[in-house]
Design a protein around this nucleic acid. Sequence first.
DNA 1: CAACCCATGTAATGGGTTACATGATTAC
DNA 2: GTAATCATGTAACCCATTACATGGGTTG
Lengths: 196, 196
Amino acid sequence: MTELSKPAYVVLGMIATGRRSGYAMSRTAKEATRHFWAMSDGQIYPQLKSLSEEGYIDGERETQGGRERVVYSLTAKGRDALDDWLNSGERAHYELRDEGLLRLFFAEELSVDQLRGQIETMRRRHRRAIEHLEDLRPKAGDMACAHLTLRYGLDLHAFSINWYDRLDAQLAERPPDERAGDALRAIDPAGAHTLA
Amino acid sequence: MTELSKPAYVVLGMIATGRRSGYAMSRTAKEATRHFWAMSDGQIYPQLKSLSEEGYIDGERETQGGRERVVYSLTAKGRDALDDWLNSGERAHYELRDEGLLRLFFAEELSVDQLRGQIETMRRRHRRAIEHLEDLRPKAGDMACAHLTLRYGLDLHAFSINWYDRLDAQLAERPPDERAGDALRAIDPAGAHTLA
DNA sequence: CAACCCATGTAATGGGTTACATGATTAC
DNA sequence: GTAATCATGTAACCCATTACATGGGTTG
């Protein structure tokens, strides 16, 4: 029973964890959840409107220092929907989109040298991602769960860097102009050897 | 210079690595690249048409045992575009969408017990993913790069399981009805402790 | 006083999935 | 003969991003 859409649950969760205006949600989306669940303003504001109409949340116009904004809170219905989602054992959506892996997949005919160049590009990207997440850490404040998910991201990218390091070390032993596919087969004929 | 769209490069790469009919591409997309780059028939076939019209690929109608199909090959222009993409140091698209992490992020007010339930759900999901990738291994045949990206997926999910195992072990030491946020703070006040 | 942040939205566009539609061939 | 696989495509829909649009408040 998929009662609500994913963006709807995100909004409910945001309210429950103290992000009560659309703007606050927008910031948290950019600063804390973006690295595992991207969401844009074009989703947040319409979602607030429809959840309001359907009675999951309740918005109150507030004037804080001359500046107007709408502050939302969960209704009983909204609280129930959120709790159901948070405790549901349903299969959670999981998706990875990695253009670097896509290039690796098609690298069969490249040279070992070219493949290693691509691997270096990927390591750089993961290093940048770590830097970015480090920068976000202070913004998590005292939210333990925000630190936890940040931690997951940091560890995940560290894992990837490590994985590519090991692969690169093995490729470094091969002649630079060898066909990448042949080199990989020579390193691990069965494709069964873990790099973790 | 983003010469072509992502799906276009996928199609070019598919042809270069021997998947020369739309159907063959569709199969490879489902069996080998789906776990890091999803793509559907609704993208493949229109893409073949437009790449054909723009002169990147060349389609020839073939009748193999009475069954008709179109077999594509790369033109010089298509080969160049593919090589540029495969060797480009440009920032590659990287995106993770993990509903489980999203739930973790909003778990602040749950009990330790509920949080551990959610963690168990996530581990199950990663275990299922590994099973699925193991099943795909024989289909990779002698494509070294296919085995490599499969290996990455397997190691990645193994990393996640391990990460959640460690987190769960720490949570097992806390009272089951403690607030999840408080428990996490007690385990790691600075949110800086790696679980990798 | 300019730049930036707070705050809220809408519209155009693009990307992608699902379902639909068709029909031949092969394996059991 | 019937189920699965080969093979190709289209259309409707959903989702999401980007850019646009507006305006008040705060900081340097």
